[in-house]
Design a protein around this nucleic acid. Structure first.
Length: 604
RNA sequence: GGGGUGGUAGUUAAGCUGGUUAUAACGCAUGCCUGUCACGCAUGAGGCCGCGGGUUCGAGUCCCGUCCACCCCGCCA
């Protein structure tokens, strides 16, 4: 094909099919760069070789689809080192126009700056760009490697339904009306979660599937309403077994897709692990980007010790601790800091911009101070009120140096964590520690383990399942289910790459008696549980093996491996942030007759 | 639901405190050119300034609303 030709092919006659990338007309001689998915080659249309070909080359325009028969010849002194086929060119002796093309709305080049809505409207043109073709070729390789890996390890690929019974909790489902049961709906599968567990009960002890999932939630640069998971479930395993199986896959994927051998970085063949609690404390989320430092400093203890240290914002938090209205071991409010090193040369205007940035996430502000001579705080409203003891303690805890800027957040823990986690990444990009997007050739992988089983639902002031209610708690935590649900840890795990969660799973709860206690802890009655998940609970009582699994986000992983800016760049036909398809116009209204058949009437 | 950025020729952008005929580059068309590869040269065509209101003698520019795209918060077990 076009991009495959090299000097070794000189003298051969080849048949090429492709698109006109560009055309250079010298009057007596015309050059056309012909492109297919392998690359580009220069075709010469020379009237002394073929008048017919020359006329065709004269008429041809960008994106016309041509077929040519041509002889490969060397370029002599006229080599083009910028393209892979630059040592040679082909001289057309026969040529056909398969199809003309209207002038395309944008050039088919990698360095496009065309707005994305235009690219999505003409997706098939965008797909001709080498970058997108590389991404889809890489995805194809990922699919092959994945199937090979799991089939080599004795896994069965089993398909599960997309149309299923709606079960509450988790992501919002797309609903599909039933024609046979008017007024009833299927839910599109948000994942095969329950079915893969049922496959374990069915005795298929090693299952995998490369499966489409559907979630009707708001989108981000790494989320699409339909996306692909590498879904895995195994029986008679513990976390180590699952980790090993996934590590094996990830190592192969990096090798096959990128040519990167992760053994150089992780010689044991295993990825590092970090407990959830540590990740939250140091990075503010459960998907830390370990390519850079800028770790958080947890200052709540210090602030309480110093009764707020004269800083007005901190005093209420210290008071709550002292008065006991506030549980020290389950902080609802915390104080955190992040240090911007003097080397970042943060100006006051930069500081204002950072404040604006965090306010956009709901922060009240960004209290900060610059470190002056002998540890004084300057350029800060805090400098007057802070006690010497508090200031020195913070300086010591954060190892502050002259010229550093320390930034504080305080308040509800989840909000502080969100703001500080985002601020940390934002700063790293601003300081050039990591690029705006892409890996910069560095891949930091890790497991995040042992998160809490429950999280606080602020609305109802009750405990709710943090993951799903079928996650197995640590045996050591079982007594806490009744005594102190917030402290129950569980066998759940996420695998993280450069600050993105690329997969997650858990060891499942297969013991009906513990299951009942979990439901009780989150206030789900037996009847309610039976109504919602009855089919699974029944299965668990009929000889369910211990089992667990994981699902990897294929698209997200492809995005990271390809250094793509967004998940849309590794999906052939993606949707916009509002879930529309700009090419086809989906979603669209339907005929009233169709609604009548389904017995559905729109409401205002 | 909330915050932010953007929308001007086919494309990407410029267009200041409102003012005469809305610029540029690339692309496109026509002609010339036998070694270009970001080809070159000459000429030319091309505009609902996202849409709807308002202010004004006058709006691409100011105000209000709205639509679309993107980024973030909420949300995504």
């Amino acid at each position: 094909m076009c991009g495959d030709l090299r000097a070794e092919h000189i003298g051969k006659t080849v048949v090429l099919f492709g698109w006109v990338q560009s055309r250079r007309d010298h009057g007596g001689c015309i050059f056309v760069d012909l492109r297919d998915r392998t690359g580009v080659v220069q075709v010469v249309f020379d009237p002394s070789v073929s008048d017919g070909c020359f006329a065709l080359g004269d008429a041809a325009r960008n994106e016309w689809v041509l077929g040519i028969r041509a002889e490969v010849r060397g370029r002599g002194d006229m080599k083009n080192p910028r393209i892979a086929t630059g040592d040679i060119e082909v001289v057309a002796s026969e040529a056909t126009v398969f199809n003309k093309s209207e002038t395309p709305p944008f050039a088919i080049e990698d360095n496009v700056d065309t707005h994305e809505d235009k690219r999505l409207e003409y997706r098939y043109l965008d797909l001709r760009r080498p970058k997108l073709q590389k991404a889809l070729i890489a995805r194809s390789q990922m699919l092959r490697t994945t199937r090979q890996h799991f089939t080599d390890h004795g896994f069965l690929e089993v398909e599960t339904p997309f149309l299923l019974k709606y079960t509450p909790g988790g992501a919002r489902n797309f609903l599909v009306p039933s024609r046979h049961q008017p007024g009833s709906f299927y839910a599109l599968a948000e994942s095969p979660q329950l079915f893969k567990q049922l496959l374990m009960v069915g005795g298929y002890d090693r299952y995998f599937q490369i499966v489409r999932c559907f979630r009707d939630e708001d989108l981000r640069l790494d989320r699409q309403p339909e996306f692909t998971q590498i879904d895995v479930e195994m029986s008679f395993v513990n976390e180590d077994d699952i980790f090993g199986m996934i590590e094996g896959l990830l190592f192969k994927l990096f090798k096959d897709v990128l040519g990167v051998d992760l053994h150089e970085k992780y010689p044991s063949g295993h990825l590092p692990r970090m407990r959830f609690e540590e990740s939250m404390r140091r990075f503010g989320n459960d998907k830390p980007d370990l390519r850079f430092g800028l770790e958080h400093h947890e200052l709540t203890e210090l602030v309480v010790q110093h009764d707020g240290g004269g800083i007005p914002f901190f005093e209420p938090i210290a008071k709550k601790f002292k008065s006991g209205t506030y549980r020290k071991d389950l902080p609802e409010e915390i104080v955190k800091a992040i240090v911007i090193p003097a080397s970042a040369n943060l100006s006051r205007a930069d500081g204002d911009k950072l404040e604006h940035y965090v306010k956009g996430m709901g922060a009240g502000g960004l209290a900060r101070a610059k470190i002056g001579e002998s540890g004084t705080w300057t350029q800060s409203p805090l400098q007057k009120s802070v006690t010497d003891g508090m200031r020195e303690a913070i300086n010591r805890a954060c190892n502050l140096q002259l010229g550093d800027v320390i930034c504080f957040q305080f308040g509800p823990a989840d909000k502080v964590h969100t703001i500080m986690a985002n601020l940390r990444v934002h700063l790293a990009k601003r300081m050039g520690l990591i690029p705006e997007s892409g890996s910069a050739g560095r891949y930091e992988l890790l497991w995040i383990t042992d998160p809490p089983l429950f999280e606080r639902d602020e609305a109802s002031k009750r405990w709710a399942a943090a993951h799903h209610p079928f996650t197995r708690p640590h045996d050591a935590c079982l007594d806490l289910l009744e005594q102190d649900p917030g402290k129950v840890l569980c066998h759940r795990y996420d695998v993280v790459l450069n600050g993105f969660e690329i997969g997650g799973g858990s060891i499942r709860l297969h013991d009906p008696s513990v299951q009942a206690r979990v439901f009780k802890a989150i206030g789900i009655s037996d009847e309610e549980a039976d109504q919602k998940f009855g089919f699974l609970l029944k299965a668990l009582r009929l000889g369910a093996p211990p089992h667990g699994g994981i699902a990897l986000g294929m698209d997200r992983l492809a995005m990271l491996l390809m250094d793509a800016e967004a998940i849309r760049d590794v999906i052939a036909f993606p949707k916009t942030q509002k879930g529309t398809d700009l090419m086809t116009g989906a979603p669209s209204p339907v005929n009233p007759e169709q609604l009548v058949e389904l017995k559905i009437s729109p409401i205002k």
